[in-house]
Amino acid sequence: MQSMTETAQRRQTISKSSLSSIRRRENWLGWLFAAPAILGFIIFVFGPMIASLWLSMTDYKVASTPHFVGLENYRNLFNGTDAFFYKSLGVTLYYVILSVPLQIIVAFFLAILLNQKVKGLTFFRTAFYLPTIVPLIASSMVWLWLFDPDMGLLNIIMRALHLPESQWIYSETTVVPTLVLMSLWTVGGTMVIFLAGLKDIPDHYYEAIEIDGGNALHKLLYITIPLTSPTIFFNTIMGFIGGFQVFVQPYVMTQGGPNNGSLFYIFYLFREAFTFSNMGYACAIAWVLFIVIMLFTFLLFRTSQKWVYYEGEGR
Protein backbone atom coordinates (compact mmCIF):
# COMPACT_ATOMS: atom_id res chain seq x y z
CA MET A 1 0.00 0.00 0.00
CA GLN A 2 3.00 2.23 0.35
CA SER A 3 3.29 2.97 -3.33
CA MET A 4 -0.12 4.59 -3.32
CA THR A 5 0.74 7.27 -0.83
CA GLU A 6 3.90 7.94 -2.76
CA THR A 7 2.06 8.58 -5.99
CA ALA A 8 -0.37 10.81 -4.18
CA GLN A 9 2.43 12.98 -2.89
CA ARG A 10 4.01 13.19 -6.30
CA ARG A 11 0.73 14.20 -7.82
CA GLN A 12 0.37 17.13 -5.46
CA THR A 13 3.73 18.56 -6.31
CA ILE A 14 3.02 18.47 -10.01
CA SER A 15 -0.39 20.07 -9.77
CA LYS A 16 1.12 23.08 -8.01
CA SER A 17 3.23 23.90 -11.03
CA SER A 18 2.47 25.57 -14.33
CA LEU A 19 -0.56 23.42 -15.04
CA SER A 20 -2.92 25.96 -13.49
CA SER A 21 -3.44 27.84 -16.75
CA ILE A 22 -4.65 24.69 -18.43
CA ARG A 23 -7.00 24.07 -15.53
CA ARG A 24 -8.63 27.44 -16.03
CA ARG A 25 -9.57 26.60 -19.58
CA GLU A 26 -11.14 23.42 -18.35
CA ASN A 27 -14.06 25.35 -17.00
CA TRP A 28 -15.66 26.10 -20.34
CA LEU A 29 -14.10 23.16 -22.14
CA GLY A 30 -15.67 20.83 -19.60
CA TRP A 31 -19.09 22.29 -20.23
CA LEU A 32 -18.53 21.93 -23.94
CA PHE A 33 -17.56 18.26 -23.67
CA ALA A 34 -20.61 17.60 -21.55
CA ALA A 35 -22.87 19.73 -23.75
CA PRO A 36 -24.45 16.96 -25.84
CA ALA A 37 -25.38 15.05 -22.71
CA ILE A 38 -26.73 18.14 -20.98
CA LEU A 39 -28.62 19.16 -24.10
CA GLY A 40 -29.98 15.66 -24.43
CA PHE A 41 -31.15 15.77 -20.85
CA ILE A 42 -32.91 19.08 -21.32
CA ILE A 43 -34.60 18.02 -24.56
CA PHE A 44 -35.46 14.38 -23.96
CA VAL A 45 -35.73 14.11 -20.21
CA PHE A 46 -36.38 17.42 -18.52
CA GLY A 47 -39.39 18.36 -20.66
CA PRO A 48 -41.22 15.06 -20.12
CA MET A 49 -40.30 15.18 -16.42
CA ILE A 50 -41.85 18.58 -15.91
CA ALA A 51 -44.85 17.52 -17.96
CA SER A 52 -45.40 14.48 -15.77
CA LEU A 53 -44.92 16.52 -12.59
CA TRP A 54 -47.63 18.89 -13.74
CA LEU A 55 -49.88 16.02 -14.83
CA SER A 56 -49.47 14.46 -11.39
CA MET A 57 -51.48 17.37 -10.06
CA THR A 58 -54.32 16.90 -12.54
CA ASP A 59 -57.06 14.37 -13.24
CA TYR A 60 -55.62 13.68 -16.71
CA LYS A 61 -57.14 10.59 -18.33
CA VAL A 62 -55.40 10.83 -21.72
CA ALA A 63 -57.04 12.78 -24.53
CA SER A 64 -59.36 14.50 -22.05
CA THR A 65 -58.48 18.00 -20.89
CA PRO A 66 -56.52 17.78 -17.64
CA HIS A 67 -58.01 19.69 -14.70
CA PHE A 68 -55.78 20.91 -11.94
CA VAL A 69 -56.56 19.14 -8.67
CA GLY A 70 -53.62 20.24 -6.57
CA LEU A 71 -52.18 17.58 -4.33
CA GLU A 72 -55.29 15.42 -4.29
CA ASN A 73 -53.63 12.52 -6.13
CA TYR A 74 -50.84 12.49 -3.57
CA ARG A 75 -53.29 12.69 -0.69
CA ASN A 76 -55.21 9.70 -2.04
CA LEU A 77 -51.98 7.75 -2.20
CA PHE A 78 -50.88 8.39 1.34
CA ASN A 79 -54.17 8.47 3.22
CA GLY A 80 -54.93 4.85 2.36
CA THR A 81 -57.77 5.45 -0.10
CA ASP A 82 -55.81 3.36 -2.56
CA ALA A 83 -55.02 0.08 -0.84
CA PHE A 84 -52.63 -0.97 -3.62
CA PHE A 85 -50.14 1.81 -2.97
CA TYR A 86 -48.67 0.66 0.33
CA LYS A 87 -48.93 -2.97 -0.74
CA SER A 88 -46.90 -2.38 -3.88
CA LEU A 89 -44.40 -0.19 -2.09
CA GLY A 90 -43.90 -2.97 0.47
CA VAL A 91 -43.52 -5.68 -2.15
CA THR A 92 -40.99 -3.62 -4.07
CA LEU A 93 -38.93 -2.64 -1.03
CA TYR A 94 -38.84 -6.28 0.05
CA TYR A 95 -37.57 -7.25 -3.39
CA VAL A 96 -34.95 -4.50 -3.52
CA ILE A 97 -33.55 -5.21 -0.07
CA LEU A 98 -33.33 -8.90 -0.81
CA SER A 99 -32.14 -8.80 -4.40
CA VAL A 100 -29.59 -5.97 -4.61
CA PRO A 101 -27.01 -7.30 -2.11
CA LEU A 102 -27.45 -10.85 -3.38
CA GLN A 103 -27.01 -9.83 -6.99
CA ILE A 104 -23.90 -7.81 -6.23
CA ILE A 105 -22.30 -10.62 -4.24
CA VAL A 106 -23.11 -13.32 -6.78
CA ALA A 107 -22.01 -11.22 -9.75
CA PHE A 108 -18.80 -10.18 -8.03
CA PHE A 109 -18.02 -13.74 -7.03
CA LEU A 110 -18.65 -15.01 -10.56
CA ALA A 111 -16.53 -12.27 -12.05
CA ILE A 112 -13.61 -13.24 -9.81
CA LEU A 113 -13.98 -16.88 -10.82
CA LEU A 114 -14.15 -15.98 -14.48
CA ASN A 115 -11.12 -13.73 -14.18
CA GLN A 116 -8.94 -16.74 -13.28
CA LYS A 117 -6.87 -18.61 -15.76
CA VAL A 118 -9.08 -21.59 -16.43
CA LYS A 119 -9.60 -23.84 -19.41
CA GLY A 120 -12.70 -23.17 -21.48
CA LEU A 121 -13.04 -19.60 -20.30
CA THR A 122 -14.93 -18.54 -23.42
CA PHE A 123 -17.46 -21.26 -22.81
CA PHE A 124 -17.97 -20.44 -19.14
CA ARG A 125 -18.28 -16.73 -19.70
CA THR A 126 -20.76 -17.18 -22.50
CA ALA A 127 -22.75 -19.66 -20.43
CA PHE A 128 -23.05 -17.27 -17.50
CA TYR A 129 -23.99 -14.39 -19.74
CA LEU A 130 -26.47 -16.32 -21.83
CA PRO A 131 -29.54 -15.93 -19.56
CA THR A 132 -29.40 -12.15 -20.00
CA ILE A 133 -29.54 -12.48 -23.77
CA VAL A 134 -32.54 -14.80 -24.04
CA PRO A 135 -35.69 -12.68 -24.17
CA LEU A 136 -38.06 -13.27 -21.24
CA ILE A 137 -40.94 -13.95 -23.61
CA ALA A 138 -39.10 -17.17 -24.48
CA SER A 139 -37.50 -18.03 -21.14
CA SER A 140 -40.63 -17.39 -19.06
CA MET A 141 -41.94 -20.73 -20.27
CA VAL A 142 -38.99 -22.52 -18.71
CA TRP A 143 -39.42 -20.65 -15.48
CA LEU A 144 -43.10 -21.46 -15.24
CA TRP A 145 -42.25 -25.11 -15.58
CA LEU A 146 -39.33 -25.03 -13.15
CA PHE A 147 -41.53 -23.42 -10.51
CA ASP A 148 -44.49 -25.73 -10.96
CA PRO A 149 -45.27 -27.09 -7.49
CA ASP A 150 -46.32 -30.55 -8.71
CA MET A 151 -44.26 -31.36 -11.75
CA GLY A 152 -41.61 -28.64 -11.76
CA LEU A 153 -37.95 -29.54 -11.70
CA LEU A 154 -37.25 -27.55 -8.54
CA ASN A 155 -39.74 -29.44 -6.40
CA ILE A 156 -38.67 -32.75 -7.91
CA ILE A 157 -35.15 -31.96 -6.71
CA MET A 158 -36.44 -30.84 -3.31
CA ARG A 159 -38.37 -34.06 -2.95
CA ALA A 160 -35.35 -36.14 -3.89
CA LEU A 161 -33.27 -34.33 -1.27
CA HIS A 162 -36.06 -34.63 1.33
CA LEU A 163 -36.23 -30.89 1.64
CA PRO A 164 -39.50 -29.04 2.16
CA GLU A 165 -41.23 -28.26 -1.11
CA SER A 166 -42.25 -24.76 -2.02
CA GLN A 167 -45.11 -23.18 -3.91
CA TRP A 168 -42.55 -20.82 -5.54
CA ILE A 169 -44.27 -18.10 -7.56
CA TYR A 170 -47.68 -19.56 -6.79
CA SER A 171 -47.85 -18.52 -3.17
CA GLU A 172 -48.28 -15.06 -1.79
CA THR A 173 -45.42 -15.52 0.66
CA THR A 174 -42.81 -17.10 -1.60
CA VAL A 175 -43.38 -15.22 -4.84
CA VAL A 176 -40.98 -12.36 -4.09
CA PRO A 177 -38.09 -14.54 -2.83
CA THR A 178 -38.60 -16.76 -5.87
CA LEU A 179 -38.36 -13.79 -8.21
CA VAL A 180 -35.21 -12.72 -6.37
CA LEU A 181 -33.78 -16.18 -6.96
CA MET A 182 -34.73 -15.92 -10.59
CA SER A 183 -33.05 -12.53 -10.89
CA LEU A 184 -29.76 -14.21 -9.96
CA TRP A 185 -29.85 -15.94 -13.32
CA THR A 186 -29.56 -12.63 -15.04
CA VAL A 187 -26.62 -11.15 -13.15
CA GLY A 188 -24.57 -11.63 -16.33
CA GLY A 189 -24.68 -7.93 -17.12
CA THR A 190 -23.44 -6.93 -13.68
CA MET A 191 -20.83 -9.66 -13.88
CA VAL A 192 -19.47 -8.33 -17.16
CA ILE A 193 -19.09 -4.86 -15.66
CA PHE A 194 -17.18 -6.38 -12.74
CA LEU A 195 -15.00 -8.32 -15.17
CA ALA A 196 -14.11 -5.14 -16.98
CA GLY A 197 -13.26 -3.58 -13.61
CA LEU A 198 -11.15 -6.52 -12.43
CA LYS A 199 -9.20 -6.53 -15.63
CA ASP A 200 -7.77 -3.13 -14.82
CA ILE A 201 -6.09 -4.27 -11.59
CA PRO A 202 -2.38 -4.60 -12.30
CA ASP A 203 -0.85 -7.94 -11.42
CA HIS A 204 2.01 -6.50 -9.42
CA TYR A 205 -0.39 -5.42 -6.68
CA TYR A 206 -1.21 -9.04 -6.07
CA GLU A 207 2.41 -10.04 -6.31
CA ALA A 208 3.21 -7.54 -3.57
CA ILE A 209 0.68 -9.21 -1.28
CA GLU A 210 2.09 -12.64 -2.07
CA ILE A 211 5.58 -11.48 -1.18
CA ASP A 212 4.24 -10.19 2.13
CA GLY A 213 2.83 -13.69 2.75
CA GLY A 214 -0.82 -12.74 2.25
CA ASN A 215 -3.39 -15.31 1.23
CA ALA A 216 -6.34 -15.18 -1.14
CA LEU A 217 -8.54 -13.48 1.46
CA HIS A 218 -5.98 -10.72 1.95
CA LYS A 219 -5.83 -10.18 -1.79
CA LEU A 220 -9.59 -9.87 -1.89
CA LEU A 221 -9.86 -7.51 1.05
CA TYR A 222 -6.87 -5.28 0.40
CA ILE A 223 -6.59 -5.22 -3.38
CA THR A 224 -9.58 -6.49 -5.26
CA ILE A 225 -12.38 -4.87 -3.29
CA PRO A 226 -10.78 -1.44 -2.82
CA LEU A 227 -9.66 -1.23 -6.43
CA THR A 228 -13.02 -2.30 -7.84
CA SER A 229 -14.97 -0.17 -5.37
CA PRO A 230 -15.99 2.32 -8.09
CA THR A 231 -17.49 -0.57 -10.03
CA ILE A 232 -19.16 -1.98 -6.93
CA PHE A 233 -20.56 1.46 -6.26
CA PHE A 234 -21.86 1.75 -9.80
CA ASN A 235 -23.49 -1.67 -9.74
CA THR A 236 -25.10 -0.99 -6.36
CA ILE A 237 -26.64 2.26 -7.55
CA MET A 238 -27.86 0.63 -10.74
CA GLY A 239 -29.14 -2.35 -8.77
CA PHE A 240 -31.27 -0.06 -6.62
CA ILE A 241 -32.58 1.98 -9.52
CA GLY A 242 -33.34 -1.18 -11.49
CA GLY A 243 -34.76 -3.08 -8.54
CA PHE A 244 -37.28 -0.37 -7.77
CA GLN A 245 -38.41 -0.47 -11.38
CA VAL A 246 -38.85 -4.22 -11.88
CA PHE A 247 -41.65 -4.65 -14.36
CA VAL A 248 -41.21 -7.45 -16.86
CA GLN A 249 -41.41 -10.41 -14.45
CA PRO A 250 -44.75 -9.45 -12.90
CA TYR A 251 -46.04 -8.31 -16.28
CA VAL A 252 -45.17 -11.53 -18.07
CA MET A 253 -45.25 -14.16 -15.33
CA THR A 254 -47.44 -13.35 -12.37
CA GLN A 255 -49.67 -10.40 -13.29
CA GLY A 256 -49.10 -9.13 -9.77
CA GLY A 257 -50.51 -12.26 -8.12
CA PRO A 258 -51.20 -14.37 -6.25
CA ASN A 259 -53.34 -12.17 -4.06
CA ASN A 260 -51.20 -9.12 -4.94
CA GLY A 261 -48.11 -10.91 -3.61
CA SER A 262 -46.05 -9.63 -6.53
CA LEU A 263 -47.78 -6.33 -7.09
CA PHE A 264 -44.58 -4.53 -7.98
CA TYR A 265 -44.62 -0.76 -7.96
CA ILE A 266 -44.14 -0.23 -11.68
CA PHE A 267 -46.66 -2.93 -12.50
CA TYR A 268 -49.17 -1.13 -10.30
CA LEU A 269 -48.25 2.19 -11.90
CA PHE A 270 -48.51 0.75 -15.40
CA ARG A 271 -51.94 -0.65 -14.63
CA GLU A 272 -53.18 2.72 -13.38
CA ALA A 273 -51.74 4.48 -16.43
CA PHE A 274 -52.74 2.17 -19.23
CA THR A 275 -55.45 -0.18 -18.01
CA PHE A 276 -57.41 2.28 -15.88
CA SER A 277 -56.39 5.33 -17.97
CA ASN A 278 -55.65 7.31 -14.80
CA MET A 279 -52.60 9.02 -16.26
CA GLY A 280 -52.58 11.94 -13.83
CA TYR A 281 -52.74 9.63 -10.87
CA ALA A 282 -50.07 7.37 -12.39
CA CYS A 283 -47.78 10.40 -12.67
CA ALA A 284 -48.22 11.04 -8.95
CA ILE A 285 -47.34 7.40 -8.26
CA ALA A 286 -44.25 7.80 -10.41
CA TRP A 287 -43.11 10.92 -8.61
CA VAL A 288 -43.34 9.26 -5.24
CA LEU A 289 -41.04 6.54 -6.53
CA PHE A 290 -38.78 9.16 -8.04
CA ILE A 291 -38.32 10.74 -4.63
CA VAL A 292 -37.73 7.36 -2.98
CA ILE A 293 -35.07 6.35 -5.50
CA MET A 294 -33.45 9.76 -5.28
CA LEU A 295 -33.20 9.48 -1.50
CA PHE A 296 -31.62 6.04 -1.75
CA THR A 297 -29.15 7.23 -4.36
CA PHE A 298 -28.30 10.31 -2.37
CA LEU A 299 -27.58 8.25 0.74
CA LEU A 300 -25.41 5.88 -1.27
CA PHE A 301 -23.43 8.75 -2.74
CA ARG A 302 -22.98 10.14 0.75
CA THR A 303 -21.59 6.90 2.12
CA SER A 304 -19.51 6.36 -1.01
CA GLN A 305 -16.96 8.92 0.15
CA LYS A 306 -16.08 6.49 2.93
CA TRP A 307 -15.59 3.37 0.87
CA VAL A 308 -15.15 4.15 -2.81
CA TYR A 309 -11.56 4.63 -3.84
CA TYR A 310 -10.72 6.48 -7.05
CA GLU A 311 -7.17 6.22 -8.25
CA GLY A 312 -7.60 9.33 -10.34
CA GLU A 313 -8.78 11.58 -7.50
CA GLY A 314 -6.19 12.70 -4.96
CA ARG A 315 -7.85 12.49 -1.59
Binding site: I241, A282, I293, M294
Partner: peptide, 8 residues
Protein backbone atom coordinates in the same frame (compact mmCIF):
# COMPACT_ATOMS: atom_id res chain seq x y z
CA UNK B 1 -33.05 7.02 -14.75
CA UNK B 2 -35.29 7.41 -11.75
CA UNK B 3 -38.58 8.38 -13.33
CA UNK B 4 -40.40 5.32 -14.71
CA UNK B 5 -40.80 5.16 -18.48
CA UNK B 6 -44.56 4.67 -18.17
CA UNK B 7 -45.14 8.31 -17.30
CA UNK B 8 -42.57 9.93 -19.56
Amino acid sequence: MMLPFAVT
